Computed example of a mutant assay.
Amino acid sequence: MAPEREGTRERVASGATASSRAPRNRLDQPRPPRRRILPEWDPEAFGRLSERIARFIGTGRFLVYMTVVIVVWVLWNISAPSHLRWDEYPFIFLTLALSVQASYAAPLILLAQNRQDDRARVELEQDRKQGERSIADTEYLTREIAALRVGLGEVATRDWMRSELQDLTRELQGRHNGHREHGVFPADRSRGRDIDDR
């Protein structure tokens, strides 16, 4: 009894030590998410947003809006009472706003252009593969058509069969006429045999 108890104690102890160990990385379970200092963002969503902004910046509507804003800004800061003006004459704040807009617009346009280039590259690759498949299909069909032509060359056509039948008919008629002249038909032969037998 004592050795059995000792064995169970060892099992329990080994089980306790195994469960108290640090958990191993299991491949059948996903890793717990790590805490990140920087916020996570979806690059696809950001890329789509940059394309929309770049597309809007490239329209005439954006130029009209920007022109209206600049004209209103300049007129207000020239003609409004001095305590309501927020950007006096050399319009430093307007210059700063336009510089910030340009510094953000350029990378957004480049990002949208890079995405467009990636899409064009993927489409070009798909077109190339489609072209290769079309060429392979065309070559296969060409070989099949050539094989059919070769096969049709060996097939008896209706005109050929008709001419062969006409030749055979003429040949049979010629033999029939020749047999009549020489008396080679069975009736003639049987008559001759009867005469000889008599």
Results as ranks from 00 to 15, higher is better:
P3W: 11
G7T: 07
R9D: 06
R11Y: 05
A16T: 11
T17P: 01
S20Y: 03
A22Y: 12
P23Y: 08
L27K: 11
Q29Y: 12
P32G: 07
R34D: 06
I37P: 04
L38R: 09
P43K: 09
E44C: 09
E44R: 14
R52K: 06
I57D: 05
G60N: 15
F62M: 15
L63T: 14
V64F: 08
Y65E: 14
L75S: 07
N77L: 04
N77I: 03
S79Q: 04
A80N: 11
H83R: 07
F91T: 03
I92F: 06
I92N: 05
T95S: 10
A102N: 02
A102I: 08
Y104G: 09
L108I: 12
I109D: 02
A120S: 09
A120C: 03
Q126G: 01
Q130N: 04
Q130W: 02
Q130K: 07
D137E: 15
E139D: 11
Y140F: 08
E144L: 10
A147F: 04
L148A: 13
T157E: 01
D159E: 15
W160H: 01
R162Y: 04
S163M: 05
L165W: 00
Q166Y: 02
R170K: 01
R170Y: 00
R170H: 00
E171I: 00
E171T: 04
H176G: 02
R180G: 11
E181I: 08
H182E: 15
F185S: 10
A187N: 08
R193S: 06
D194N: 14
D194C: 11
D196I: 13
D196P: 01
R198W: 05
